[in-house]
Design a protein around this nucleic acid. Structure first.
Lengths: 129, 129
DNA sequence: GCTTGCTTCTGTAGTTACTACAGGATGCAT
DNA sequence: ATGCATCCTGTAGTAACTACAGAAGCAAGC
């Protein structure tokens, strides 16, 4: 059995976050030792890692939980998984498009600034309607 | 004088958000009518629009406020503005790079899914270490 | 003058996903 | 026995809003 600190190291999820996940019912309640400390099995470490990987990919906790549940359920999991994945992909692509526009606007703004005029073109740009 | 609903329409900032900005000291307290309703001038509408534009560009409220203050202060505003702009630009570029990686990973994940195998490669990928 | 319906008011709580304590107990090595 | 690391619970804070509830005001039509 693995203590919470070790579980954190093994999974990459912080101690506070593990406790938070338990509190919120995102993972099931950990078994306790005689003195009340949480103890984890390899299975639970894998579960934490799974959630962590989903979060790194930008899935919401809600989606991560859904995916984890699907990982246990056998039938037509793949379809649902693909749906979640595609949805998330298009969200990511939308965000990418937005950020690209943003980058362009900022590059222009800052480039104007660099010309060292007496009044500030970037502020003027922000003020303009 | 302009009521809060009209101010919201003119600036694109929601009523609740305008009140929130006032509560938090992000904008100054609005003048009140005899009956206690908030009243706005054109100047204040412009201020709201300025903040809104900064927020749309992804600046934090804190940065937006700093920029607005600089817009009123004359001397060496431009330098500070450029610093804030460049900093924000590199943040945006970092985020862009991250999202591009993410997109690539998701495209691969979902592409595997589409092959219609019996078990789900996307789940397997998430489970794998 | 009264009703109807829209707008506004204050105050509070909820959102997302954590993070950061405080204050106290436990485990382990010396 | 002492010291230090680790762990516990419970609470509050973060960013930037959003969403009510319940009451009051305003403008127009009858």
């Amino acid at each position: 059995m693995i203590a919470i600190g070790e579980a954190s190291r093994l999974s990459g999820v912080s101690i506070e976050t593990i406790r938070y996940y338990e509190r919120e019912g995102i993972i099931s309640k950990a078994v306790r030792t005689a003195s009340g400390r949480r103890a984890y099995s390899d299975t639970e470490i894998s579960e934490l890692r799974f959630i962590k990987r989903c979060r790194n990919l930008g899935f919401s906790i809600q989606d991560a939980v859904a995916l984890r549940n699907l990982a246990d359920a056998p039938s037509d999991a793949c379809e649902t998984v693909e749906r979640l994945g595609s949805k998330h992909l298009s969200d990511v692509q939308a965000k990418l498009a937005e950020l690209r526009k943003l980058e362009k606007a900022l590059v222009e703004l800052v480039a104007n600034c660099a010309k060292g005029q007496s009044d500030c073109p970037m502020l003027d740009a922000l003020k303009a309607r």
